[in-house]
């Protein structure tokens, strides 16, 4: 059974069609990258998965059940979510940010603390040094690491990433992409990753879903994407070609 399944999903707001008849599924343990230009509907697609939005037509199934049949709060607590600039709570310490979902789930305090320390160490932020800092005392890359640790806190089966590394400098971004790959191999979570950066998509994806004006233009592995003759895919592949080597 696929972990996430889009069945002819459509979404519209104010009469404007954002997503149109989208069908694909995400298998357990894979990293599906939703690639597309601004306004292609990729963030909308992501927000349908944790029921931040509900489909206008069709059905979206998570763990075999439509999102409309899930308890929304429980569903969201079982899905990690990382956004650009991390969306950390500025008035919470790093430790409280990371321990948020376990606290909401009423884990005993010692268990929360142990989990927070473990996760901070795991994302390369020694808890001794970082646990009691406030988000504004961190660099952009460090904040993003905290965001990843927070998403992992309650050991969710699914992780959602909405252009998490978009605001970082290229070197930090590369570091975090490598970190992402390492964590993926260690943890084997099902991940859906939104980006407009085709390089990032090629590096991180096990499969790429290309969205073009709310429609699914292509679905396949990075190697298949490279060979695709879809016109929108071709536009993205142009970005990858070194300058002057037009064929």
């Amino acid at each position: 059974m696929p972990e996430i399944e889009f069945r002819n999903v459509g979404y519209a707001v104010g009469g404007r069609q954002i997503l149109c008849d989208i069908s694909f599924s995400v298998e357990a343990g894979e990293t599906l990258v939703l690639l597309g230009r601004s306004g292609s509907g990729k963030t909308t697609a992501l927000r349908l998965i944790n029921a931040m939005l509900l489909p206008a037509s069709g059905e979206l199934r998570v763990a075999g059940r439509p999102t409309t049949a899930h308890d929304r709060v429980a569903l969201r607590r079982s899905i990690g979510y990382v956004i650009q600039d991390a969306g950390l709570f500025p008035h919470f310490t790093v430790a409280r940010n990371v321990g948020l979902v376990p606290s909401l789930e009423n884990w005993p305090r010692e268990k929360v603390n142990a989990r927070v320390a473990e996760l901070l160490d795991r994302v390369g932020l020694p808890s001794q040094e970082f646990a009691n800092r406030k988000p504004r005392e961190l660099s952009g890359g460090q904040r993003q690491r905290v965001g990843v640790a927070r998403a992992l806190a309650a050991d969710p089966r699914i992780l959602l990433f909405d252009e998490p590394f978009g605001a970082l400098d290229p070197v930090t971004r590369l570091d975090l992409q490598n970190e992402f790959l390492r964590l993926r191999d260690e943890l084997r979570k099902t991940s859906v990753f939104v980006t407009h950066d085709v390089r990032e998509a090629m590096r991180l994806a096990t499969r790429i879903a290309l969205l073009d004006q709310g429609r699914l233009a292509f679905l396949g592995t990075p190697a298949e994407f490279r060979r695709s003759d879809n016109p929108e895919a071709a536009r993205f592949l142009e970005v990858l070609r070194p300058d002057g080597a037009a064929c």
Partner: peptide, 8 residues
């Protein structure tokens, strides 16, 4: 957004 997405 992230508060809602965390399941608050």
């Amino acid at each position: 957004d992230s508060a809602i997405a965390m399941g608050m």
